[in-house]
Design a protein around this nucleic acid. Structure first.
Lengths: 229, 229
DNA sequence: AATGGACGGTGACCGGGATCACGGCGCCGG
DNA sequence: CCGGCGCCGTGATCCCGGTCACCGTCCATT
């Protein structure tokens, strides 16, 4: 249970290219934080002075409108990090981050992080690569919001979720997400998600059990997701 | 006309923090390219082996669906750069880039760029900052697509466009954009953009002349853009 | 066992915005 | 000067999906 922070750092993809010596330096700088399910980790608008690595658990990055409607920008699990934007460009936090399960984090303060960044080009490059990927995903989301109907966006999301947890042709989603959450990810109401998923089940494209979604017909999903409506 | 590439590099915000010596090295590596209005600069799916700096002109970054509908992810002008994603994460080009006017570019090849990146932490940090900003904007776009109606999204876009060319409280948009282009940026049809803009003019929120849009009532625009519908 | 809360299923309704259709206008090159 | 073309304005129609309303089911707690 009381894992050495250093061992945790070694499992973080962001640090894969970073030399061992740098990791040791990092390990001395991080601090463990815990948040219960539902707990707020950071809030939109706050000044950002720390980066977080997820040791275990799951968090959502979301934006909340005045009337309470919520948009989930991403869901991150163990090995991911967040909070880097505010460190890099000195702007306030751009979104809320909320624990979806009991979560253990490693916190790294701005100056410590920036200091390592200057000294370790490998770290910069890993980080650049990761931000590039996030930017691609964001652009992809924008394009699907503009080009696809709800059915296509849900197909897209299911493929993406399966890929994240099961490699290139992942076919199972075990992460537990409510219809409401799925709706907040694709910009649809809970009711519409419910009807759309029902439809996919009836057409034998997916199967849904209590704690997992299985993608039965990936081809059909790809078609719905790629096809411009 | 035949400006020294070095002088151009000095004007690029990305290079502001980069030491003069590095710029000199860069200047020797870049190559000038020209594209006429409408010309394709790079295509979605291509392997990416170069980064481009815009010396003059204007380009759009866009994704085109099978049926021809187009989504404009961003419009970039002199001093901006593009093509960095494929260099950083080795994935294919994520979108098309097309010249909206006759455009002059400086092209920098992958290996030259990567080499400088390893040697110049200042460059990495500038780039990280720039990618952070782009990620914020992308997230913002996603949130407005999900939370705002077309009126709000257009208000948002107008504020953003004015800010880009006129500082914090910019109030003029001189860049020439058709209603169709605006629609492709906010996910709305040309007709709806037309009707919405007309409405803003009637309410004295903006004024539109042949070659500029003036934001008369920024407060009203902010209200429409921030308010969750 | 009972109760309450979270979650999913489904019908009814209706409204924002896409689409279709057409017309007008300014600017271009011949 | 005059067709042609790119762009904008506007009405009519239609439908996807949001919203409201209500119910059933599954836990979790007492």
């Amino acid at each position: 249970m009381a894992l050495d922070p250093l061992d945790v750092l070694r499992t973080v993809p962001l640090f894969k290219q970073v030399p061992e010596a740098d990791l040791v330096a990092f390990a001395r700088l991080v601090r463990e934080r815990r948040r219960p399910r539902g707990g707020m980790i950071l809030s939109q608008g706050d000044p950002g002075d720390a980066l977080f690595l997820i040791r275990s658990g799951q968090v959502k990055v979301s934006v909340v409108a005045e009337d309470g409607r919520e948009v989930i920008l991403s869901v991150l699990g163990a090995g991911s990090f967040f909070g880097e934007l505010a460190l890099l460009d000195d702007e306030p936090r751009s979104a809320h981050v909320i624990a979806m399960e009991d979560t253990v984090l490693l916190q790294l303060h701005r100056e410590d992080f920036r200091g390592r960044l200057k000294l370790s080009p490998e770290l910069s490059i890993s980080l650049l690569r990761e931000l590039s990927q996030r930017l691609r995903r964001a652009d992809d989301t924008i394009a699907s919001l503009m080009l696809l109907d709800v059915n296509g966006r849900i197909a897209n999301l299911l493929l993406e979720l399966a890929r994240e947890e099961g490699g290139e042709t992942g076919t199972r989603i075990t992460r537990r997400l409510t219809h409401a959450s799925l709706g907040q990810m694709v910009g649809a109401s809970r009711e519409t998600v419910s009807r759309t998923m029902r439809n996919l089940v009836l057409r034998n494209v997916i199967s849904v059990t209590r704690r997992e979604i299985v993608l039965l017909d990936i081809q059909a999903l790809r078609l719905a997701a790629q096809r411009a409506i």
